[in-house]
Amino acid sequence: MTDPVLSVKNLVVEIPTRRAVLRPVDDVSYDIAPGEILGVVGESGAGKSMTGNAVIGLLDRPAHIAGGEIWLKGKRIDNLRADQMRKVRGKEIGMIFQDPLTSLNPLLRIGDQLEETILEHLPVSRAEARKRALQALEEVGIPAAAERLGSYPHEFSGGMRQRVVIALALCAEPSLVIADEPTTALDVSVQAQIIALLKRLCRERGTSVILVTHDMGVIAEAADRVAVMYAGRLAELGPVEQVLNAPRHPYTDGLVGSMPMASAGKERLRQIPGSMPRLGSLPDGCAFHPRCPKADAECRQNPGPTLDATGGRAACWFPVSQEVSA
């Protein structure tokens, strides 16, 4: 096994408020191998975006990293100064957000934005940068790319805009891309185009991707491994076919089971009772226990095990599939 591109170790993010210190990310660890797509799923407020933002050093104050380490290609990046971090972003880590307009400057032509980004991070001449900008637009499938270099962001459709953002994220040849809900705002047919594009480009370049999304379908289609988050913690982590086909954590199991499936027909859907607790009022013990069918006294009192404690897949004392096989 090669060295991981990114290694997140026991990451804790805290938000101090006047009532309590909230932990939107609590003891999260994962590695990403070169060229791998790691899907991060969870409901809103599960901490999946917060984890990504912590990695790229874009936490909004007063949220801050309160513990753990982040290593990028053997270099520790969680303790870098803001200006050093800025160099890492863009050069080493590309970013794709849900709303393409947040990543594009509305006042600059697309070509200039690409060119500037390339010049800032790569040692090339202006002419060479221009050439690469054109190449980048062609690669993401923008028709008539040479003419579109002179267009402004608002002149593109939503899908085309997201393509431009992908070109921008990849033009400095980063080794890692963080894509935060990249297709949530797009229509089904455009979403399929963007996912296919992201998969193809990253495979060709060997770029690793953290794909943050709430859509299990997108995960199934794109990710190699998947991390399921619940209330700030990793509930389950494993290869995508194992997690989706034979989930171990009761939460993943409930989540997968509650999806209306093509094969299931019209029967009642399985449902998880209740909803995810808010950060300010997490229950004692395992955060999932009030909704868990298997919870016992132990789960109600002691925090659930971390992934390490259970030796890998699911952070739960009573993993689902093991029971069946035993």
Binding site: P24, S44, M50, L279, S281
Partner: peptide
Amino acid sequence: MTDELVDIKGRAQA
């Protein structure tokens, strides 16, 4: 992000 901010207030369970 917004959902996390809503959470911070933690009003629901007060």
